[in-house]
């Protein structure tokens, strides 16, 4: 049974690897694929804190944006190759997330969400209004632009295919880490904290330290994605990175697909991105916010009808069957008589 579980993901992964090789995919379609994968990646990163640990952040754009700016600045001003730059940026962002997390973790969940949301707004104000931050020119409201030239060492390629594989690899990495987390002590602690902090603490869980770990891991991965995005388009736009839309979209993708599940963010991101894409393609250009409106409506529908998200809903029946099977074997093992305790 365990073997079976791996078959579908491996087939999907192989298909994703072979896709650009087998089919000729045009430039714009390739960009779309890369964006979808990047959103899947960001939603999965959010899931580690927002889904498993219940740290319902409304400001993951903080980490995405910081990762983007840091990677870009390290590349432009320190000549650091983006492959290393992304890692350094992600580590620094992770540390930053802990610094801002420490005072906010003590807040009740809704106030934590509001605090992250407020901080996102502050980041946007800072990065659009200041031309230089700590003596580094970040471009102010024009954003941070640079022309990296064509060098694979600088993560610049003549075709888009390498980007596709890089972001696919990143997605696989974040999913593997998430999978490992859910099966480890840390993952159980994360979920216990999410359900009931006080009860978790009474069972020896160091709530504050674990929240910091969840936030660090999540911010780390979010920032890596930001760094990738920055190198992909050679531009960081503060109003996009620190805008409400990106952070909310990432959250919605995860919640719609199923927060607290491994595949929820992936399915949710694919679904929401596709819908947004179709809507923007066919909607009249005068209706600017239509895509956001529709993803908001989808969220409402999900909250009403699929409170756990899409994946739990789909998995429910299968899980139920598996559960009754497990129960049956358990009853057989215990011989039916071991239940009564006297």
């Amino acid at each position: 049974m365990k073997q079976k579980k791996w078959i579908l993901p491996v087939i999907v992964l192989l298909a994703a690897i072979l896709l650009p090789v087998v089919f000729h995919i045009g430039l714009s379609n390739m960009s779309i694929l890369i964006s979808v994968l990047l959103y899947m990646y960001w939603a999965s990163s959010w899931n580690i804190m927002g889904g498993y640990t219940g740290l319902f952040s409304l400001g993951n754009g903080i980490y995405i944006g910081l990762g983007a700016y840091l990677t870009g600045c390290l590349f432009v001003y320190a000549n650091l190759t983006p492959y290393a730059g992304m890692l350094v940026a992600a580590l620094l962002t992770g540390v930053f997330s802990i610094i801002i997390g420490y005072p906010t973790f003590r807040l009740q969940s809704i106030f934590y969400s509001l605090a992250t949301f407020a901080l996102l707004g502050m980041m946007k104000i800072i990065f659009t209004n200041f031309q230089t931050i700590f003596g580094v020119n970040v471009g102010g409201s024009n954003g941070f632009k640079f022309s990296p030239g064509n060098d694979p060492l600088n993560m610049q390629f003549s075709s888009k295919m390498p980007y596709y594989y890089i972001v696919l690899g990143m997605l696989v990495a974040v999913l593997l880490v998430s999978h490992w987390i859910t099966r480890s002590k840390r993952g159980f602690y994360f979920r216990a904290i999410s359900a009931n902090e006080g009860a978790a603490a009474s069972l020896g869980v160091s709530v504050l330290s674990l929240k910091m770990q969840a936030q660090f891991i999540s911010a780390f991965f979010s920032a890596m994605g930001g760094g990738f995005y920055c190198m992909f388009i050679s531009y960081v736009d503060p109003s996009k990175m620190f805008g409400v839309e990106l952070s909310i979209n990432v959250m919605i993708m995860c919640v719609v697909g199923g927060a607290n599940t491994l595949w929820g963010p992936v399915i949710g991101a694919g679904l929401i991105y596709t819908i947004n894409r179709i809507v923007t393609m066919y909607a009249p250009s005068s209706l600017n916010g239509l895509a956001t409106l529709i993803s908001g409506l989808i969220l409402m529908i999900c909250v009403f009808f699929l409170p756990g998200g899409l994946i739990p809903f789909l998995a429910d029946e299968r899980e139920k069957r598996a559960m009754s099977r497990r129960k049956a074997t358990l009853q057989k093992q215990s011989g039916g008589g071991g239940g009564i305790h006297e």
Partner: peptide, 11 residues
């Protein structure tokens, strides 16, 4: 233990 049972409902 707690007077009002506090299960982790997600586990």
């Amino acid at each position: 233990t707690y007077q009002i049972c506090q299960p982790f409902s997600n586990l």
